[in-house]
Design a binder for these strands. Structure first.
Length: 110
DNA sequence: AACATGACAGGTC
DNA sequence: CGACCTGCCATGT
């Protein structure tokens, strides 16, 4: 199989480091991977996540602290349930900042 | 090679 | 806080 970009592997590796009971943002994961501004790639990597691999994809949410999956088709509820079963609390569909694994500090090298 | 897409983020209004 | 626009960059057609 064509070894997809190592980027995905790196991303999955970082996502695996998000402790249970905590969450991280796409941008944050990208930053820790050493690829600032590749937030969309993180989403892409998780979307292409093969079944069976041990990656807590549900712990990654967007910068607004919300789930980035469509409410239709049960996708949204599925992720929410997984997080709640790990102790994550939602306040008006948002995860409190105190539950973030890493501070969402931004790096603006520009 | 050109163009469209996306599980995003940041800034503006 | 919400709606909108712009920047990003790997992927797929």
């Amino acid at each position: 199989m064509k070894r997809q970009s190592d980027l995905y592997g790196t991303i999955w590796k970082i996502v695996r480091r998000i402790p249970k009971g905590k969450v991280a943002t796409y941008g944050g994961v990208a930053r820790l991977c050493g690829f600032p501004r590749h937030a969309r790639l993180v989403g892409y990597a998780l979307h292409n996540l093969p079944h069976g691999v041990d990656v807590p994809w549900q712990r990654v949410i967007n910068s607004q602290g919300k789930i980035s999956l469509p409410r239709s088709n049960g996708q949204y509820q599925r992720q929410k349930s997984l997080l709640e079963s790990e102790g994550i609390v939602f306040v008006r569909d948002r995860v409190p900042l105190r539950l973030y694994a890493w501070s969402g500090k931004k790096v603006r090298p520009k």
